[in-house]
């Protein structure tokens, strides 16, 4: 069922490093008739604390969930890690299996003046597009099909895994949702080696060398397939592939030049939104211009070149 109104949960990374992701999401959502409510008290989802102190992480997550519940809203996330963790804690309440943890969380929430009953659904924006709005309806908004453009989809990890908390909306071993979302823009979704490889972002802070080696593997695999761009749906994956791409190029003496687009940016292009004003492509670290020029050529115009 499509709901018209959602609480938009930005989390930490999108708030500071993902204005291109946020803006393109908001503009695409406006076109599709979805309304976002911004809850100013939303904080970190809690996930980064899970490895340090489980109890703090749980209460952080539950507080965010309680804020949405008291506003009567379900949550849309843009960060897959936020989505995974908030969903995990929401399921804890919905399944009512771990009574001790629930009791602890409720006690702490009460002391903070909150109450959570488990009545909030958490969904990734890409999942809402795929599952709730649906491919058929989305297709009606495509006015500039990206014909012949080759896009490598990067699912990331927490969008589909652990699969048991995501109601089987996609297969964790052979996922299709992002491929189908890419195809509906008219672009070709390319297949490449180790497509489900993790970006490495989860250990960037503790071991940068190992982390970027993981990132590099996928850039190599995508380069081999001559992709015009990669598309992804998690701000941390974007840090690794977009922000770190030039570092990886100089460290490993290689050249990739692979533009990294958030999926709403890609969809926005096919919906005819303005690359600069609506999709903030200038915020992408690897230049998107070659891709925009290629799209311009498809339509025999030069509008994208001007703006980028």
């Amino acid at each position: 069922m499509i709901k018209q109104k959602y609480a938009l949960f930005l989390g930490c990374t999108v708030s500071v490093k993902g204005i291109n992701y946020e803006l393109s999401t908001r503009r695409v959502a406006e076109k599709l008739g979805l309304k976002f409510v911004d809850i100013p008290e939303f904080a970190c989802c809690g996930f980064p604390l899970n490895s340090i102190h489980h109890n703090s992480a749980l209460v952080m997550a539950a507080r965010n969930l309680a804020l949405a519940e008291s506003n009567g809203l379900d949550i849309i996330v843009l960060c897959s890690a936020c989505g995974g963790y908030l969903t995990e804690v929401q399921k804890l309440f919905a399944d009512k299996k771990n009574k001790d943890e629930m009791k602890y969380i409720n006690e702490k929430l009460k002391e903070l003046g909150y109450n959570f009953n488990g009545g909030v659904k958490v969904k990734h924006f890409a999942r809402v597009l795929y599952e709730d709005i649906g491919l058929d309806k989305l297709k009606k908004f495509i006015i500039k099909p990206l014909k012949g453009i080759k896009i490598a989809p990067h699912y990331g990890c927490h969008y589909i895994k652990p699969s048991k908390i995501f109601d089987g909306f996609d297969d964790p071993i052979l996922p299709q949702s992002l491929d189908k979302l890419v195809e509906l823009t008219g672009a070709t979704s390319i297949q490449y080696k180790d497509k489900l490889q993790c970006c490495g972002g989860g250990i960037l802070a503790v071991d940068e060398e190992t982390s970027v080696k993981m990132t590099r593997q996928k850039l190599e695999n995508i380069k081999e397939k001559n992709a015009d761009a990669m598309t992804l749906i998690c701000p941390f994956c974007s840090i690794m592939y977009d922000e770190f791409q030039s570092t990886i190029e100089s460290t490993f003496e290689s050249v990739y030049n692979i533009p990294i687009l958030y999926y709403p940016q890609l969809l926005g292009l096919a919906m005819g939104l303005d690359p600069k004003k609506d999709l903030a492509v200038k915020q992408n670290q690897v230049k998107v211009k070659p891709l925009l020029e290629k799209i311009d050529k498809l339509y025999g115009v030069k509008e994208y070149v001007k703006t980028s």
């Binding site: 708030s15 946020e22 908001r26 904080a43 102190h53 109890n55 703090s56 209460v59 952080m60 507080r63």
Partner: peptide, 20 residues
Amino acid sequence: IPELNPTIPEVKKVLKKTDI
């Protein structure tokens, strides 16, 4: 797009109450 609160002071309380 809407401004964000530069700080969310309540997080400090959450961390304190959960004994981090």
